[in-house]
Computed example of a mutant assay.
Amino acid sequence: MCASPSLPGITGLSHHHDPACPKDSESREVSSTDLLGESNVLIITHNGQRYQLRRTRQNKLILTR
């Protein structure tokens, strides 16, 4: 899936071209540490819905609605 250009306030973004995306599109790579920081939970809003991105004790990520 192709992503939009940038996330305001997030540092450490790596822009690279994804071969699966059209030539003029860029995907983004963001470290989970940059997203979560010291917290284990991040609330993401998308199309009016709230999602929870959570880092588990086993250091895995789970996205729930």
Results as ranks from 00 to 15, higher is better:
L7I: 15
Q49K: 15
I62Y: 02
H15C: 11
G37L: 05
S39M: 06
H15D: 09
L42T: 06
Y51I: 07
H15A: 12
L7V: 14
G48Q: 02
D18F: 10
H46Q: 14
K60G: 08
S39R: 09
S4E: 15
P5L: 08
T33H: 11
R65P: 07
C21G: 05
Q58H: 13
L63Q: 01
D18P: 00
A3C: 08
H15Q: 10
V41M: 13
K23D: 13
E26W: 06
D18E: 14
I62Q: 08
S4I: 09
H17F: 09
H17K: 15
A20P: 01
C2R: 04
G12K: 02
S27G: 15
S39H: 09
S31M: 04
S27A: 11
L61G: 03
R50I: 00
C2A: 03
G9A: 07
S14W: 13
Y51H: 12
K23H: 05
T33M: 02
H17M: 09
G37K: 01
S4T: 14
S4Q: 10
P19K: 08
T45Q: 04
P5A: 12
G9S: 07
Q52E: 09
K60T: 14
R54S: 07
V30Q: 02
N40A: 11
L13S: 10
S14N: 15
I44D: 00
L42W: 03
H46V: 08
Q49G: 01
T64K: 08
G37T: 04
P22W: 08
D18Y: 07
T64Y: 00
R54Q: 11
R54F: 03
G9D: 07
Q49L: 12
S39A: 13
Y51N: 03
Q49D: 05
N40K: 12
